[in-house]
């Protein structure tokens, strides 16, 4: 550690801290306030103005008596009113069938997709850690989905899952039109995009395990299964936990895939919390409901993160 002039130390750190404080914490507090209010957006007529009617050359039109023709234009102003309503919005959200369904769907979605991603990622990492031909090339192909634009991916899968004559139509599964299948189709997209990420992290972790450790274990037992359960998995455990944390937090945000793949449908079968909140806020103008709904979700995610907090702190020594 360099002994540092305190002012310069802060000069380095503070711009980023202030930027982030101003743009994440401040909006969060505002959102908290909104969740206790009923927001009404009203267009108020503040006055009437007379302006001349112009012809197509831009000159004012005149009447036969020479006076300038005018039209009356109402001056409008968007006014936002905040009425304090206490916990009313929270009560509505909690009792709202639509919110309950969205929360249930998001919850199941997160559990199933993260579980499949972890298991499949571990399997692939195991496979790619073996001696195989063309590993570098296949690894490059495998990780392509990670960076692909999620919203575009939704559309891509829309063409692939197209039930009438898409490439998977031969399976005869109503991927997007059946309310039982549609949630799995959305999970499929998540699994497709994020299994490669889990795979890549686990592979890096596996390759970081010293060879002599594995060799020492092979002296004890010949069973590959035993080596995995008693040596490799315990070594990978902190990383698996971290990946679960990251994936849960990320996939709980679910919005992009739905916006392009199912639009929450059929019915409301694939409506996630983010998607519902978005619709409530910007299609139905209910800012209070949206803020309360998203705050409840934030609290759940935060509780989950807190469970891992001590471990996370250790990672960054």
């Amino acid at each position: 550690m360099i002994r540092w002039d305190k002012r310069i130390k802060l000069l380095f750190l503070l711009p980023a801290v202030i930027w982030v404080l101003a743009l994440t914490i401040a909006p969060l507090f505002f959102s908290l306030y909104l969740s206790f209010t009923d927001v009404k957006r009203e267009v108020v007529i503040t006055g009437v103005e007379e302006i001349p009617i112009l012809d197509k050359d831009g000159n004012p039109k005149t009447r036969s008596d020479g006076s300038i023709r005018t039209k009356k234009v109402k001056q409008k102003e968007l006014q936002i009113k905040y009425d304090w309503v206490g916990f009313k919005k929270y009560k509505r959200v909690v009792n709202d069938q639509e919110y309950q369904d969205a929360a249930k769907f998001t919850f199941i979605y997160v559990i199933i997709s993260v579980f499949v991603e972890i298991v499949l990622g571990l399997f692939l990492a195991f496979l790619f850690n073996r001696r195989i031909y063309g590993r570098g090339f296949m690894r490059s192909l495998m990780i392509l989905p990670i960076f692909a634009t999620p919203f575009a991916i939704g559309f891509m899968f829309f063409t692939i899952l197209f039930e009438v004559s898409g490439p998977l139509a031969w399976m005869g599964i109503p991927f997007l039109s059946n309310h039982n299948w549609a949630p799995f189709s959305v999970m499929l997209v998540d699994i497709w995009q994020w299994t490669p990420f889990c795979f890549l992290v686990f592979l890096a972790a596996l390759q970081g395990i010293p060879d002599d450790l594995i060799e020492a274990a092979t002296l004890d037992t010949k069973s590959a299964y035993k080596i995995w359960t008693s040596v490799i998995l315990p070594l990978l455990q902190p990383i698996i936990v971290l990946v679960i944390l990251l994936r849960v937090a990320e996939s709980a945000k679910l919005y992009d895939y739905i916006a392009s793949l199912t639009k929450g449908g059929p019915g409301t079968a694939t409506q996630s919390v983010s998607f519902l909140v978005f619709n409530k806020a910007f299609k139905m103008n209910d800012f209070g409901y949206a803020s309360a709904g998203s705050f409840l979700m934030l609290i759940v995610v935060m509780i989950f993160v807190m469970l891992f907090f001590t471990r996370l702190r250790k990672t960054y020594e």
């Binding site: 909104l34 937090a249 990320e250 806020a281 934030l298």
Partner: peptide, 18 residues
């Protein structure tokens, strides 16, 4: 700093809009 990536954007979006 990292916790921002965990934050669900839905919670911040209405304030940003306003």
């Amino acid at each position: 700093f990292i916790s921002q990536r965990v934050l669900p954007p839905a919670a911040a979006v209405v304030p940003f809009f306003v």
